[in-house]
């Protein structure tokens, strides 16, 4: 079966001021459908850069990236936008909900750019919010929600297009231990339902909940372990 994410000899360089940063130095990685992978490493290790490339938010400097079998280097910017919108769901450390929209409208947002009718958007967003247990909070704005609730809204937003892969960047980083645990439980459930999950974290307690651990250091994969 074709892996969802397949990286071969991937390199990423960028210039930060006068310095040239060599963030990724030859990454080979395949993630199959239905996997739950935790990418761990200290800050500066390149894990965020890796996430950025896997999420098609930037392009590799060298090497190839196939997403669901398709080489992304041949896709233009609008095509990448579409790919992100339809096949990738993002969950961020700082939630990144739009403060002016209600929970429901935030969840709807990916559908807006697919040109789906208002009624269908409402319906699907409502169902998805229900899935993450926030149906009764639909009309609240992010400022009226707790951190855990905001992250649930963000997860609902990531889920709404039934993406091939959900990318979570430190999803519990801004939450207390209890709430973080609840979010991880939700992610476990999604994995159990068959979703492909990739989470980036520097917290081993969080990373250990994923069946597959990837450790990154200095832009290289240091270890790739699967729990039994």
């Amino acid at each position: 079966m074709t892996p969802v994410v397949q990286l071969e000899a991937l390199e990423k360089r960028f210039s930060a001021g006068r310095m040239e940063v060599h963030a990724l130095r030859g990454i080979d990685l395949a993630i199959a459908q239905g996997e739950f992978v935790a990418i761990m490493g200290p800050s500066g290790s390149g894990k965020t850069t890796l996430m950025e490339i896997v999420g098609c938010l930037s392009r590799p400097s060298a090497g190839t990236y196939r997403f669901a079998g398709r080489d992304v280097s041949g896709i233009d910017a609008d095509g990448l936008s579409r790919l992100r919108g339809e096949q990738i769901g993002f969950v961020f450390q700082s939630f990144n909900l739009l403060p002016r929209l209600t929970a429901l409208e935030n969840v709807e947002l990916p559908l807006v750019y697919r040109g789906i009718s208002r009624r269908e958007r409402r319906e699907r967003a409502g169902e998805t919010l229900e899935r993450v247990g926030l149906a009764e909070r639909a009309s609240h704005r992010p400022a009226q929600l707790s951190g855990g609730e905001r992250q649930r809204v963000a997860i609902a937003r990531a889920l709404i297009n039934r993406p091939h892969v959900i990318l979570a960047d430190e999803p519990t980083g801004n939450l207390d231990t209890t709430t973080g645990g609840e979010i991880m439980t939700l992610l476990d459930e999604l994995h159990a339902e068959g979703h492909t999950l990739v989470i980036v974290t520097h917290d081993p307690l969080i990373g250990d909940r994923a069946p597959r651990h990837l450790r990154i250091r200095d832009g290289r994969i240091e270890s790739d372990e699967r729990a039994a």
Partner: peptide
Amino acid sequence: RSEIGVRLAVGARRRD
């Protein structure tokens, strides 16, 4: 800018 980033991440094209 982060709003724009979110919009781009969830499928907005530059022209949107």
